[in-house]
Design a protein around this nucleic acid. Structure first.
Lengths: 245, 245
DNA sequence: GCAAAAGTGTTAATGCTACACCCATGT
DNA sequence: ACATGGGTGTAGCATTAACACTTTTGC
């Protein structure tokens, strides 16, 4: 049997298949606190509950492609750092039917959220409360603006936990932190981001030197304005592998 | 519309779905070299090519469950450390049809492979050649016993690359290395495993102390036998969180 | 000039590397 | 006795944490 005749005989409908979905954990640091974008579900199940933006993967669409489509359509966001997180496939994770969901997380500067929140009324920006400090992660709680704990649909709280764990784990050996800041930023802002994610205070001189020695920061010569004290220098992230001077 | 009536109206067959599969990267360290279990495909596509053991996920079966089933049925293995790796979902990764594959990797002591290789004739144990040394991973080559490079089916070489990257990354802050050794082992054997994975020689006293200071090793008092030199003490891995004395 | 935060220097502690040495076993 | 690898002690090096200090701006 050659390959062509094999393909003729292959029957993709022989077995019942799960549906494949993508869910996005869109994170940022807002006022020194980790935050996530949630959408209010208007349909069953979990109607009127908060959930991560997500959707089904089309038959002619790659997983990363689907993640970017949902980022644009459901979350009204443009470019962002996007990375696959983990795939959730418990049989009972959706009461309707069998759905395997590939969780992605995306990191954005806080300013990117304000436009999206104005564009769609069913979105909210929930603050994250992370009770655990070290590497081994537990659950993460999403809080609304008035401090109430939000109940999330499906297993989306587990997705938040995995996202937070990944973020903490990769923060200090990857360029992940820069995705949460605007193009130009001060070293203090970068330190604030790290402190918000790790949940600990860091030593200022040590942090400065660690970051500068890494060679990822390019001083712009420009200064921050508007403060009533000495203005900090603005830096830009530069990928160390490309663009060597 | 209440939830019950919603479920009545929901039509899971409205859209064409991808198939969902699980592929396993079964790794071990054999004679100081990373090795992976491959199966010879007897069907199109990639007939007579080597591939990772894998299979479709049943409609009533969780992803982890499917991984363990394939571990038992296709690889003839029992208990093992199993961890989800990454999900591959490019549209053209399988010429037959759209298949989203969740890659898992499992770590086993070398002795577990000999029984499996005897039980099934379509299995082989390929040595891995890892050309890159640092954190940023490239491709990994699977070599047969006579040193020839094996061409792998689908995107399975990419799966091998991700597995090797994960293994290297987690080796020295997790208990992952112990899954590659039998229950009782010497510190030298543990060091050999680390050196094989990292691809570098390690300093003996430093390695000993790092491992012992971590508190994961329990000395058994027993000694290795059969060597013509001073017999090494046998240790056992003990999970630090549970089972405190 | 004063307050506040940016930015820099110096010291202390920590962890790791490297080397040297002793120990136990089979031949 | 000797060769071989297991096991331990000590000194040197590098990295990092901690503290004190100087600099620059607005009021």
């Amino acid at each position: 049997m050659n390959e062509a005749s094999f393909l003729d005989h292959y029957d993709p409908t022989a077995y019942e298949k799960p549906s494949v979905a993508v869910d996005l954990v869109l994170m940022s640091i807002v006022n020194g606190t980790p935050a996530v974008l949630l959408v209010c579900r208007d349909a069953h199940p979990f109607q009127h509950c908060w959930a991560l933006p997500g959707g089904f993967v089309g038959i002619g669409e790659g997983l990363d492609e689907a993640a970017h489509r949902i980022l644009a359509d459901k979350a009204h966001m443009g470019e962002a750092y996007v990375e696959q997180l983990y795939t959730f496939g418990a049989v009972d994770r959706d009461p309707r039917m069998r759905i395997v969901s590939v969780a992605y997380f995306a990191l954005l500067p806080a300013a990117s959220f304000t436009a999206a929140l104005k564009a769609a009324s069913d979105l909210t920006l929930a603050k994250l409360f992370v009770p655990w400090a070290g590497e081994t992660g537990g659950m993460v709680q999403a809080h609304s603006a008035d401090g109430k704990t939000l109940a999330l649909a499906f297993d989306h709280d587990a997705m938040l936990g995995v996202a937070m764990l990944r973020l903490r784990g990769k923060l200090d050996y990857s360029a992940l932190g820069f995705a949460l800041l605007p193009e130009l930023f001060t070293l203090r802002a970068l330190q604030d981001v790290h402190e918000a994610i790790l949940g600990v205070r860091l030593n200022k001189p040590a942090f400065r030197r660690r970051m500068l020695d890494r060679g990822w920061l390019e001083p712009t010569g420009e200064r921050e304005t508007g403060a009533s004290f000495r203005p900090a220098e603005l830096y830009r992230y530069r990928n160390p592998s490309e663009g060597g001077e």
